[in-house]
Nucleic acid binder design. Structure first.
Length: 657
DNA sequence: AAGACCGATGTTTTT
DNA sequence: CATCGGTCTT
């Protein structure tokens, strides 16, 4: 048993797996077997007689959580039946806690979870109520600031700024939070922040969880924010068995308040911490690793470490300058073609990474023209499409008839003759239940055309409320689509040219939604809806990556974290784009861009191709760009540079060992 | 209340 | 450029 758990691990990894008691920090370079280490540690803990359910492992993605789940099951095969440890992201773990405990904060356990879109509409609504001009104060900026305050655990009642703009923010923040509470809704930040709040205010609840989870593992520790850090600190305070693993050099989420200091200061927090470095890289060639290390060495803030690999030296890194983004895309397609033809690569061996989503378009066009299959991560996300969001809003509203945000989405979708002024009247009646408010207003209107629209709408909502208990999830969704005549509505949008996709595609998307929904059909009525909405709310981009499938994957560098590919293309390596122009001012931001570059490069196993365009269209205007400084930060002797014109480039570089 | 038209505005990155 | 929101017309 023990033997199989340590099989295939190097000494450092074994050390990290065996250090079961007390605080442990593992600094793990890219490709150093981090997931492997986490998995084996969980398996080892269980083999030592620790109850699986007393282990909490927080991962950065749901995908990693599933991977650990599967691998642990495999490692412990034949050990008899055992409970699963708690595995999940910060957000999903907190959601589970809150469904049980949120009562103490005066919310009810069937709360809705609002995504970023919803948050922004709420901020706008609140600002309108406070008569704040959205032109003067950008609602996005206000929301951003609110979110930062939340992650820093500053609650509205504790925020008393003196300066002008913060004072505005403070007013919005107060109103925003009380609106959320009124409609029994939580935003993403609340999931973490309110959990911390409960733990701080109710030591007996905290203690219950401390006793339950005696061993805590946190993945991607470098990307934790202050609230997440606090949560871990609280939960682990009693038993102090906290295992943090991560890589400061791969911290790329400062913009959403990740604080690299959490990992840098781990030893200050836990002076008795055992610190282990995983420096052997199993993923990349020597050249790729050298490029990554040379670049990152330009950063001041970092934990010193020396990565190494036994892999071969490999190909040189191919740098190509093209005339514009179209030529760039065509070059990449040609290059892939050549690699498949001459080197036996398969289409799923390739990934194209870029700094911003906007870059995907030119690349997609080239891929479509040449008939190359691809999948794209992020961008116009499936669950952000109008038709999906509409139907989900109906579901959400069925569960929580105080959910004003969802109501605003559906009250006139499909169009049913209820306009903005009528909406205002409904919300003015307000009350606990918006369905009742619709009914009340219908009665007030007597026998008008409006009254008929309202009554019809009320009947619809009543029918839906009834159905939510009777049917399983996929029938409920089908019923919503049918009862609202949603398909006709889509077709009318097409007819009016308000929508440029065809209605069939949209219906296909809804069918795909139904396929996902079928998973929840065995749960009864409301519970199915609830679990389904939860899954969707917390879903991440990379979760949707299909493993099999013969296609090229396109995504932002941020989305690529944790993944690896035989051949990586990095597009748009230009000053202003990467590093992004918004980041060139502060040194800390430039360092983050550099870490991002480090992440991008270290996704590659054997080949790396980097492109930069001389001219690029931005906002419809052609802009001339210089090659990225990061190209200059790589050791020049491992590069093959192919300039815009000229053929001083040879495909058959020598492979050295 | 709905549709048509126009000008402003924006793009990092995402749980 | 392309989407969004606001305003004007029907």
């Amino acid at each position: 048993m023990e033997k199989s758990i340590f099989e295939g691990l190097n000494n450092k990894q074994v050390e990290a797996v065996r250090a079961t008691d007390g605080p442990v920090l593992v600094i793990s370079g890219p490709g150093s077997g981090k997931t492997r280490c986490l998995t084996h540690r969980v398996a080892f803990l269980i083999s030592q007689g620790i109850k699986p359910e007393s282990i909490l492992a927080i991962t950065f993605t749901n995908k990693a959580a599933n991977e650990i789940k599967e691998r642990v099951s495999r490692l412990l095969e034949g050990e008899g039946k055992f409970h699963q440890p708690m595995l999940g992201t910060f957000h999903s773990v907190c959601l589970k806690i809150l469904r049980r405990e949120i009562g103490v904060l005066g919310y009810s356990p069937n709360f809705s979870v609002f995504d970023q879109d919803d948050q922004l509409s709420l901020v706008k609504r609140v600002m309108a109520g406070l008569e704040l001009d959205p032109k003067k104060y950008n609602p996005r900026m206000v929301l951003n600031k609110i979110s930062k305050l939340k992650t820093d655990l500053v609650f509205p009642e504790n925020y008393n700024p003196t300066e002008f703009f913060p004072k505005i923010v403070s007013r919005v923040y107060n109103a925003y939070q009380s609106e959320l509470k009124k409609m029994n809704g939580l935003d993403f930040d609340d999931l973490i922040v309110l959990t911390v709040k409960i733990f701080k205010q109710n030591p007996e609840i905290l203690e219950k969880y401390q006793n339950f989870w005696k061993y805590i593992l946190v993945d991607e520790y470098q990307d934790t924010s202050h609230d997440q850090y606090t949560l871990v600190k609280l939960l682990s305070a009693k038993h102090r068995n906290v295992f943090a693993i991560g890589d400061d050099a791969q911290s790329i989420y400062a913009f959403r308040d990740a604080d690299i200091r959490n990992i840098l200061n781990f030893q200050k927090d836990y002076p008795d911490a055992k610190v282990i470095f995983l420096e052997q890289n199993y993923r990349s060639t020597k050249n790729i690793l050298a490029a990554a290390q040379n670049i990152i060495s330009n950063n001041q803030t970092q934990v010193p470490k020396e990565l190494w690999t036994e892999n071969m030296k490999g190909e040189k890194i191919h740098i190509k300058e093209t005339l514009n983004e179209r030529a760039e895309a065509e070059f990449m397609v040609d290059k892939m073609d050549g690699l498949m033809e001459q080197n036996g690569y398969k289409i799923q061996d390739f990934t194209i990474l870029y700094r911003t989503h906007a870059q995907s378009r030119a690349i997609e066009e080239a891929l479509i023209t040449r008939g190359f299959p691809y999948q794209i991560v992020g961008g116009i996300r499936f669950y952000e499409r109008k038709e999906i969001k509409d139907i989900l809003a109906y579901l959400r509203f069925m569960l929580n008839p105080t959910d004003l945000i969802s109501f605003e989405r559906i009250y006139n979708v499909p169009t049913r003759g209820i306009g903005k002024s009528t909406l205002e009247k409904i919300t003015a009646i307000g009350g606990e239940n918006l369905i009742e408010a619709v009914g009340t207003l219908a009665k007030e209107k007597g026998d008008s055309k409006q009254a008929r629209s309202l009554t019809e709408f009320k009947n619809l909502l009543d029918d839906l409320s009834k159905k939510r208990k009777e049917k399983n999830l996929s029938s409920t969704i089908k019923y919503v689509i049918k009862r609202t005549n949603y398909e006709d509505y889509l077709q009318s949008l097409v007819a009016k040219k308000e929508m440029f996709d065809n209605a069939e595609d949209k219906m296909d998307n809804l069918k795909e939604l139904l396929t996902v929904a079928k998973k929840y059909d065995m749960l009864k009525g409301e519970e199915g809806i609830e679990k389904f909405l939860e899954e969707i709310a917390l879903l991440q981009e990379t979760d949707k990556l299909k493993d099999a499938g013969d296609r090229i994957t396109l995504m932002t560098i941020h989305s690529s974290k944790g993944l690896e590919f035989p051949v990586v293309f990095i597009a748009g390596m230009e000053e202003g784009l990467f590093p992004h122009s918004r980041a060139t001012l502060a040194p800390s931001e430039m360092e983050e861009e550099r870490r991002l570059c480090y992440v991008a490069i270290t996704r590659a196993k054997d080949r790396l191709v980097i492109t930069h365009a001389k001219y690029r269209n931005i906002f419809g205007q052609s802009q001339a760009n210089l090659p990225s400084r990061f190209i200059g930060e790589m050791p020049q002797n491992i590069l093959t540079i192919q300039p815009l014109f000229g053929n001083d480039y040879y495909e058959d570089d020598v492979i050295e060992y």
